[in-house]
Design a binder for these strands. Sequence first.
DNA 1: AATGTGCGCAACCGCTAAATG
DNA 2: ACATTTAGCGGTTGCGCACAT
Length: 169
Amino acid sequence: MGRSPCCEKAHTNKGAWTREEDERLVAHVRAHGEGCWRSLPSAAGLLRCGKSCRLRWINYLRPDLKRGNFSRDEDELIVKLHSLLGNKWSLIAARLPGRTDNEIKNYWNTHIRRKLLGRGIDPVTHRPLTDAATGAAAAGRHLLPLQHPQSERSGDGVQLRQQLPGPQG
DNA sequence: AATGTGCGCAACCGCTAAATG
DNA sequence: ACATTTAGCGGTTGCGCACAT
């Protein structure tokens, strides 16, 4: 049958990573590369799920991460890309070197989304909010999810790449 | 100074497409 | 062709900190 299980269900740590765990993960990836996440935990001596290791590496430990505040250019680029791609954070992150999809997603939800709402712009459609929608947004209710036709999962925004700006730097 | 509240970030959860036997 | 697992993605949650009361 298929592959062997992803990770041992028992004896896996959860929650915040310790410094020692980080060091083990970094050392292992440096030595062996970002290969098979499934076998990485045992090979690196970590009591973590491979999925957790991958997330930790991509979002926090990768050496090419910028970290720190988003520049105004990055801010504007995220808004522009989001208007074209919708919540395709990985695609947006691919256009922002040194930034991760998780980081951009967090930044969007905590900063940009609020900023757009403050300007009376719907963060989903990037269009001016109607009075009714404004009321709903102000009340913190769920707006109807609006699919960006170009950003359907199947299409993956491939066609869009022609109209998108190139990677920064 | 103590308590309450909101925000930001890291990590987890659940799902899907792709890969594998 | 099918069943099963992996890798990756997006949504959500929970903790810790800063600020307000």
